[in-house]
């Protein structure tokens, strides 16, 4: 999806280093909604594509206006609504109760807490590199021109650009399909390196290298 989230190379966002930027968050609700997102996901309470994919569906103006953790609140709520776990209006009703001074309901379930930590520690690596991968380190490839309507891991800024296979990372199913529950066979994933001049054209900085991990489906021989 060519949304506002695909921001590599955009202008106008200003400086990176600003006061407060060193901290992961600035208010207690922020790590809590982050944790809530993980817990609702692990407990199967949300539907549709995952949190990242759902956030990409935000309209661009809302995406850019929202803070990082506001996006997480939005995607958690959307997934819960789509599953029918919560009903439209339910969150607003609770907001009124809390704003009216009511204490927030709590619930204790130590077993759920243990399940969450075990889940965070679970290792799920991708499959090892296939022996018959189409490309090998050193091969020249070009990223296909494409305009995917849904989730993709291929940013706009490398489409149509030629690069060089750095290494074969492993084999994995194409997220562009699996996000939507569509069947996909494991395919090679490659680290591909690109020269800055090929990506951006001439610039003021000395040449540098940009590297991305790209699925075989995104690539053509160059």
């Amino acid at each position: 999806m060519d949304g506002a989230h695909d921001m590599g190379g955009m202008h106008g966002f200003g400086p990176v280093v600003e006061p407060g930027g060193e901290l992961p968050y600035h208010a207690r609700w922020e790590p809590r909604v982050f944790a809530l997102h993980l817990v609702t996901g692990f407990e199967g309470l949300g539907a549709g594509p995952g949190g990242r994919q759902t956030r990409e569906e935000m309209d661009p103006a809302s995406y850019l206006a929202a803070s990082y953790f506001e996006r997480w609140t939005w995607s958690a709520e959307q997934r819960l609504l789509r599953k029918g776990t919560i009903a439209p209006g339910e969150v607003e009703a609770m907001m009124e109760r809390l704003a009216g001074g009511e204490a927030a309901p709590e619930h204790a379930d130590p077993a759920m807490a243990e399940r969450m930590i075990a889940r965070l520690q679970r290792r799920v690596p991708m499959d090892p590199p296939p022996a018959d991968a189409r490309f090998a380190p050193g091969d020249r490839v070009r990223v296909s021109r494409m305009r995917p309507p849904g989730h993709t891991r291929c940013p706009r800024y490398v489409r149509g650009v030629a690069g060089t296979i750095e290494r074969v990372r492993g084999a994995d199913r194409l997220p562009d399909l699996t996000t939507y529950g569509l069947a996909a066979e494991p395919e090679p994933v490659y680290a591909v390196r690109f020269a800055s001049g090929d990506v951006w054209g001439p610039g003021e900085e000395p040449p540098f290298t940009v590297l991305l991990d790209l699925w075989d489906s995104y690539l053509e021989p160059a």
Binding site: R32, V33, T40, M94, D109, R115
Partner: peptide, 23 residues
């Protein structure tokens, strides 16, 4: 809004406060 979302799920017993605390 974030607070209310957690509260809705806690009230229904779907998400535990201690699971959030643990994460």
């Amino acid at each position: 809004r974030a607070h209310a979302l957690e509260a809705v799920l806690a009230e229904r017993g779907l998400v535990s406060t201690d699971a959030i605390d643990a994460v």
